[in-house]
Amino acid sequence: MNISFRIIAATFALASASACTKYSGDSLLNLLEHESAYDQSSIISKAKSEVSDIFDNLGISEEANNSLRNISPKSVIRDSEPLKLTEVDNQLVVAGADTNIAFATNSIIISTGAVHIAHSSNSVVVCGSDVDISHDGSLGNGSLVISKGKAKISHAENTLIYAINGVEISHANNVRAYNTKERKTLWGHINNNLVKLLFHEETKSNLAVHTGAVQ
């Protein structure tokens, strides 16, 4: 009886806390729905604010990653259809479907669909699905890559990763992960830090663990 009561109490406490918690990752992915398509300054300001919250959640100081924190897009690319872009530089991309980019630098990229980038540096990528990057950080500073699915990167240098379903990197040089349980590399090592959750759906697995549903 006591065990059952503790399980019920833990479930209620976690559910209540979850309902009152703001999830910065979800807020960014909802930009396409809630921000005016004609007010670029407003959507850029909102995106920068949410990205700043994410850095605070990850416990990354301003001094440790000044270049990423200082990303300030000058214009917005916004579409609910799949996007195929040659170069994204100092821009905010808000996509409601899959996004394919050849070169991305100094930008914030938000996509509800999958993201594929050939070369990226000093950018923040927040994706509602899988992320596939050929080279990150080879042309400059590394990026922050956040995925609700799985992240795959061929060559990553000074990259920060948050991937719910794990990350695979062929060559990892000074890569750090957050809340990323599955981490695979062919060369290099990835340290993982446990931090505040960025997505509401992550509370489901955490709830199962706390109540004993997962062994």
Rank of each mutant, 00 (worst) to 15 (best):
L58I: 09
L31H: 07
G59V: 10
L92F: 07
Y38P: 00
L28T: 01
S27H: 00
L31A: 06
I146Y: 02
T86I: 08
S121K: 07
T112E: 11
N193T: 12
V93M: 05
I77W: 01
K48M: 13
A47N: 03
F199E: 08
I161A: 02
T105I: 02
S170V: 08
I117L: 08
S154V: 12
N2W: 04
N192A: 06
S170G: 10
W187F: 14
R69G: 12
S121L: 05
L58W: 07
S121M: 10
K84Q: 14
S107F: 04
K84G: 09
A47V: 06
T105Q: 12
V124M: 04
P73V: 02
N65T: 05
F5S: 15
S52Q: 14
V175A: 05
H135R: 13
S129H: 10
I133R: 02
S49C: 06
K148I: 01
F12C: 12
L198N: 05
T159Q: 05
T159Y: 03
K204V: 15
S120I: 06
N57T: 06
K196D: 12
A213Y: 10
S147A: 15
L32R: 08
S80N: 14
N57E: 13
V115G: 00
V115K: 00
N192P: 02
S4T: 13
A163K: 01
L14H: 09
E87Q: 12
G140C: 07
A118N: 13
